[in-house]
Design a binder for these strands. Structure first.
Length: 876
RNA sequence: GGAGGCAUAGCUCAGCUGGUUCAGAGCAUCUGCCUUACAAGCAGAGGGUCCGCGGUUCGAAUCCGUGUGCCUCCA
C-alpha cells in the first residue's frame, strides 16, 4: 500500500460520508436502547452555511457522535424553516429581476412562484451540512410548511383562540415599511445611530411673541402632533397651564398637557406628542384622550392625513421639513445626537412605530410553567448565566404580535362574514359550518366567507418544531414521539433565546404537557479577529465551503471548536485552520510510521523497555478519557478537544511512539506492534466526534476491517481505575529526558554528539525499566549508576536524583553554576514560606488535615532537593 | 434609563468547592536541528503587578464591596 505524504481530505470526506449514509448509520428507529435526540435549529430555507452554523452544527454533531459511541440510539432531525419574511423578500427580489411586480400578482400566483423557488434553490444548506460531516437522519428531513406541519400550526392557532389567548386588536406595532408588515419586538434590532436633534418652537395661542420649544429626532412626525407635554413640577412651563399651542406649517391648535412621564432634563423638558407614531406618545394619548393622526402610509411615505408632503418618503421629508420650518422661523437650533434606532432584522429598514389591527397572543399563562421549569433546573441551561436573562424576559412577558402582512407562510385561519363576525377554524369547511350554524339566514344569502389576508409569524410555526417533527398533530400518542420526546439537547445561539427557545418551552408544556428538551447549550457568537460580529453586511464571514474544500472539513471543525470557549463568544482566527490541518497531517504520519513497522514484526523478538511505555500510555489514555468525559458533560467542548489534541500529539506521538520505536532496521515485537495499533485506535475513537473523516480514514488504514466495522459505530472502551504510580514514573522519565536535553543544548552539544550518562539514585529498578528509552531519547552511548560525582561532567538534578553528563567537549561550568544557584535560591525561598505556614498555629489548627500533610510533604521534598543541589553545586 | 456579562503571558483562553512547587495551555516569539513518520516537523527556552483599591480569612487569581474599562440584551 502506497501512502501519500499527507492526508488527502477531499477523497476521504466524500467517500466516508457516502459510506456512512449508505450503511444506514444516520438513520434511527426506536429500539430498546436509550434515545439521544437532537432537533436541528432549522436554518432558513433560503440560507447558506455560514460560520454560525458551522459552530452550532459541529457542536451538535460532536454530542451526537459521542452519544452513539456511548450506546445511545442517536437521532438528529434535519430540516428548514420557511422563514416567511426572509423568503418572501428573496422571492420578490427574484421576481423583480425577471420584471415581475409582486403587486400585480394574485396571492396564488405569487405562492406558485415562491414554491417553485423553494423547490429549486431552497435547502441548499442541508447539502452543505453533509460537507461538514453532520450525521443527520436525512429520512426525517422536515420543513415548517410541509402539509402536516401546516395542519399542526392551524390546530394550535384554533386551540389558543378557543382558550382566549389569541385575539385581534389595534395596537402600536413595529412596522417594516420595506416589507410592509408588522414585526414582533424580537425582530427589531436596536442600533446606536448618529442623528440630529432638532429644536422647534411652537407658538402659544393668544400670544404672538411666546413660544414653547420642543426637541425631536423625527421632525417629520410634527405633522401628526396632537399635544405638547411638560412636567407638572417644571417651573419653566407652570404658567402655560390650560393654554394651547400651534403646530407649525399645519397650523393646528393642540393642548399643552402636564404629566410626570416627562424627563425634565432631556432637551427642553417639553415633549411633542405624536400618538400615531411613538409607543410612549400613544400611551399618553390614551391617558389624555388625544386624537390620533396617522401621517404615514404603509410604505413609509406621508399619508393624506399628514396634510403636507403627501406621497414623499419619510426621510426626504425629514430634511425638507427642517428647511421649511427654518424658513418660517421655527427652528431654534440643531445638534448632533446619538440615539438607538430600531431596524428590521430581515430587511434592515428603519422601523416605524405604527398603529394597526393585528393578531395577538397572550403569553402570560404559558409563561408560568416555562419559567418555573427552567428556574428549578428541570430544563438545564448551559451556561447557567442565561437563566437570569430568561427569567427577566419571562417575568415581563408581553403579548406576541403573531400576524404578518405577507403571503408566504401559514395563512391565519380566521374567516369573516359580511357583518365582520370572525370564524376561527382549522379549515375553510369547518369555518363555513360554524357560519351556517351561527347565522343560518345570512349564510343562505351569502354563502362565501372571506379569509384573513395575513400569515403567521414564522416563529409561530417553529415553536412546535421538537414535537411536530415526530408527528404530534397526527397522533400525540405515536411511538416515535413517545420514544424521542423530550429531546436531549438543544444547541442554539443566545440571540434567539426569546424568539425560539422560550416559545418552544411554552409550546411543549402547553400542548404536550412536557418539556421539549432536557438541556439547552448556548454557543457563543462568532466574531472576526477584530471582535466584530460576522455578518453579510460587513462581508467578514468567510466562505465556508471554500474553507472546507481547501483545508478539509475536519480542519474547519477543529478550528471552530478549538477557539470556542464555553459560554463565551468566539473570535475566529483562520490561523487555527492550519493548526487543524497540521493535526490531521500529524495523525496521518503517525499512521505511516506504525504501518512502516508492520513488515518488521517478529513473534519472538526480545522486548526491552516497551512494556513500560505501553503501560504508561494506557494509563495516560484512561486518565485523559475521564477528563474528556467530564469536559464534554459540562459542555467544555473546546477543552475536551485540547485534551485529546495534546494526548495524541504530545503523549502519543512525541513520547510514546519514540519510546517504542525500534532502532534502524531492527525487528518489531508482535506484541508491541499490536498494542500500539490498539492504542492508536482508541485515540482515534476519542477524537472521532470532533474530526470524523480523518479518524475514520486512518482507522481503516491501520488494519483491514470487515464490512460494518467502522469507527463511527464503535463503542467507547471503559477504562478501569487509574494507576497513578505509573503516571508519576512516566512524568519522572519525561522530566529526566527534558532536563538532560536542556543541558545538552545549553552546553552546545549537537544532536549528533553522544554522551555518557551517570545516575546517582535510590530508584535503580525504575531506571533499569526505562534505560533503553532514556539512552535513545538523550542520545547516550552509555548509561550507568554511580554513587559519587563525576569529574568534568555536566551535573543535572531531577527531583532527588543526580545525573552526570559526560561528553567529549569543554563544559561551561560557570553558566551551570549560575543556573543551579538560581534554582537553589528559589527553593530556599519556597521552603521558607512553607516553614512559615507550618509554624503558624492558626494554619495548623484551621486548615484541613490533608492540606497540612501536604505542606509537610512539600517541606520534606524541598529539603531533600536543596541538599542534593547543594552537594552538586559544591562539586562544580 | 433597566438587566446581565467580561477583565489572567504579545493573542485567544483554562484555572470547577479558597490550599498540589499555582500562576497554566495553545498560538505567536527566540535558539538549535532537513535526526531513520511528519520542516504542515523535531528539540529547547524566554515571557505575567492575575485591571486599580479596600474587605473577609491562618491563607485570595478564586469569595464580598468599590472604582475604572470593554461587551451584550432590553426600553
Amino acid at each position: 500500500m502506497e501512502l501519500s505524504k499527507n492526508f488527502q481530505h477531499r477523497e476521504a470526506e466524500q467517500h466516508w460520508y457516502g459510506h456512512w449514509n449508505k450503511s444506514g448509520y444516520f438513520t434511527s428507529k426506536p429500539d430498546e436502547r436509550p434515545p439521544y435526540t437532537i432537533v436541528i435549529p432549522p436554518p432558513n430555507v433560503t440560507g447558506v452555511l455560514h460560520m454560525g452554523h458551522a459552530l452550532n452544527d459541529t457542536v451538535q454533531d460532536i454530542l451526537l457522535r459521542r452519544a452513539r459511541m456511548l450506546g445511545y440510539n442517536t437521532c438528529w432531525v434535519p430540516g428548514t424553516d420557511h422563514a416567511s419574511i426572509a423568503t418572501e423578500a428573496k422571492v420578490v427580489g427574484m421576481l423583480r429581476e425577471q420584471g415581475i411586480d409582486k403587486n400585480k400578482l394574485s396571492r396564488d400566483e405569487f405562492l406558485k412562484h415562491a414554491w417553485e423557488w423553494k423547490e429549486k434553490y431552497g435547502g441548499i444548506i442541508l447539502q452543505q451540512l453533509k460537507k461538514l460531516g453532520c450525521a443527520l437522519d436525512w429520512d426525517r428531513t422536515a420543513f415548517t410548511m410541509d402539509d402536516n406541519y401546516y395542519a399542526a400550526v392551524m390546530r394550535v392557532f384554533v386551540e389558543l383562540y378557543n382558550k382566549g389567548y389569541i385575539y385581534r386588536g389595534v395596537k402600536m406595532i413595529n412596522w417594516d415599511p420595506k416589507a410592509k408588515t408588522a414585526l414582533s419586538d424580537e425582530e427589531v434590532i436596536h442600533r446606536q445611530t448618529n442623528s440630529k436633534l432638532t429644536y422647534v418652537r411652537y407658538r402659544i395661542v393668544g400670544d404672538e411673541e411666546e413660544y414653547i420649544t420642543i426637541a425631536t429626532v423625527r421632525p417629520e412626525t410634527i405633522l401628526g402632533d396632537t399635544a405638547v407635554c411638560v412636567h407638572p413640577d417644571d417651573p419653566r412651563y407652570a404658567h402655560l397651564k390650560g393654554k394651547k399651542c400651534i403646530i407649525p406649517l399645519v397650523n393646528r391648535e393642540v393642548p399643552i398637557i402636564f404629566d410626570d412621564y416627562i424627563d425634565i432634563e432631556f432637551g427642553t423638558g417639553a415633549l411633542k406628542v405624536t400618538p400615531a407614531h411613538d409607543i410612549n406618545d400613544y400611551n399618553l394619548g390614551l391617558k389624555y384622550n388625544l386624537p390620533v393622526i396617522d401621517t404615514l402610509n404603509e410604505d413609509g411615505t406621508m399619508s393624506e392625513a399628514a396634510g403636507l408632503y403627501i406621497g414623499q418618503d419619510r426621510f426626504a421629508v425629514r430634511k425638507q421639513i427642517v428647511k421649511d420650518l427654518a424658513a418660517a422661523g421655527h427652528i431654534v437650533k440643531e445638534e448632533d445626537y446619538s440615539n438607538q434606532v430600531g431596524f428590521s432584522e430581515r430587511t434592515d429598514a428603519v422601523i416605524e412605530p405604527r398603529l394597526s389591527m393585528q393578531w395577538w397572543c397572550n403569553m402570560e399563562k404559558m409563561a408560568g410553567p416555562a419559567l418555573e421549569n427552567v428556574m428549578n433546573g428541570n430544563i438545564e441551561f448551559h451556561p447557567a448565566k442565561f437563566k437570569n436573562l430568561y427569567r427577566h424576559w419571562m417575568e415581563n412577558i408581553k403579548d406576541w404580535c403573531i400576524s404578518r402582512q405577507l403571503w408566504w407562510g401559514q395563512r391565519i385561519p380566521a374567516w369573516y362574514d359580511s357583518e365582520n363576525t370572525i370564524y376561527v377554524a382549522e379549515t375553510t369547511e369547518k369555518a363555513h359550518e360554524q357560519y351556517k350554524q351561527q347565522k343560518p339566514e345570512l349564510a343562505t344569502q351569502q354563502p362565501e366567507l372571506r379569509q384573513d389576508e395575513d400569515v403567521l409569524d414564522t416563529w409561530f410555526s417553529s415553536w412546535l418544531w421538537p414535537m411536530q417533527v415526530f408527528g404530534w398533530n397526527e397522533n400525540p400518542e405515536n411511538a416515535e414521539l413517545k420514544y424521542y420526546y423530550p429531546t436531549n439537547t438543544l444547541v442554539t445561539a443566545p440571540e434567539i433565546i426569546f424568539f425560539w427557545v422560550a416559545r418552544m418551552i411554552m409550546a411543549g408544556y402547553e400542548f404536550m404537557g412536557e418539556k421539549p428538551f432536557n438541556e439547552v447549550y448556548f454557543t457563543g457568537i462568532v466574531r472576526d479577529k477584530q471582535g466584530r460580529k460576522m455578518s453579510k453586511q460587513l462581508g467578514n464571514s468567510p466562505d465556508l465551503l471554500a474553507l472546507i474544500d481547501e483545508h478539509g472539513a475536519d480542519a474547519v471543525r477543529f478550528s471552530v471548536m478549538i477557539s470556542s470557549p464555553a459560554g463565551n463568544d468566539l473570535l475566529y482566527d483562520e490561523g487555527t485552520l492550519e493548526q487543524g490541518r497540521n493535526f490531521s497531517n500529524k495523525m496521518w504520519n503517525a499512521m505511516k510510521l506504525i504501518k512502516g513497522w508492520e513488515s518488521r514484526v517478529v513473534d519472538n523478538v526480545e522486548e526491552g523497555n516497551e512494556q513500560f511505555a505501553i503501560n504508561w500510555m494506557e494509563q495516560r489514555m484512561a486518565e485523559a478519557s475521564q477528563q474528556i468525559a467530564e469536559q464534554i458533560k459540562d459542555f467544555r467542548l473546546s477543552e475536551g478537544l485540547k485534551t485529546i489534541y495534546s494526548l495524541i500529539w504530545n503523549d502519543f506521538c512525541s513520547w510514546y511512539l519514540e519510546w517504542v520505536k525500534p532502532g534502524m532496521d531492527q525487528p518489531m515485537s508482535h506484541h508491541v506492534y499490536q498494542r500500539t495499533v490498539d492504542i492508536y485506535e482508541q485515540l482515534l475513537q476519542l477524537l472521532h466526534p470532533y474530526m470524523p473523516f480523518v479518524t475514520e480514514e486512518i482507522y481503516h488504514k491501520l488494519r483491514e476491517r470487515k464490512p460494518g466495522h467502522d469507527l463511527m459505530v464503535q463503542q467507547l472502551p471503559v477504562f478501569e481505575s487509574i494507576n497513578t504510580d505509573i503516571l508519576k514514573q512516566g512524568s519522572l522519565l519525561q522530566e529526566v529526558i527534558t532536563s538532560v536535553r536542556d543541558n545538552r543544548v545549553k552546553n552546545g552539544l549537537k544532536p549528533k554528539d553522544t554522551i555518557r550518562l551517570w545516575i546517582n539514585t535510590q530508584h535503580h529498578s525504575f531506571y533499569e525499566a526505562v534505560q533503553d528509552i532514556l539512552r535513545r531519547q538523550v542520545n547516550a552511548e552509555h548509561i550507568g549508576f554511580t554513587d559519587t560525582a563525576k569529574e568534568d561532567s555536566i551535573s543535572v538534578v531531577v527531583q532527588t536524583d543526580k545525573l552526570y553528563i559526560e561528553a567529549d567537549k569543554e563544559i561551561d561550568t560557570a553558566a551551570q553554576k549560575e543556573e543551579m544557584q538560581k534554582e537553589l535560591d528559589y527553593l530556599k525561598g519556597f521552603l521558607e514560606s512553607v516553614n512559615k505556614k507550618l509554624s503558624n498555629e492558626r494554619f495548623v489548627q484551621n486548615a484541613k488535615a490533608d492540606i497540612v500533610d501536604n505542606e509537610r510533604r512539600k517541606k520534606e521534598d524541598a529539603e531533600a532537593k536543596i541538599k542534593t543541589l547543594e552537594e552538586s553545586l559544591s562539586l562544580l
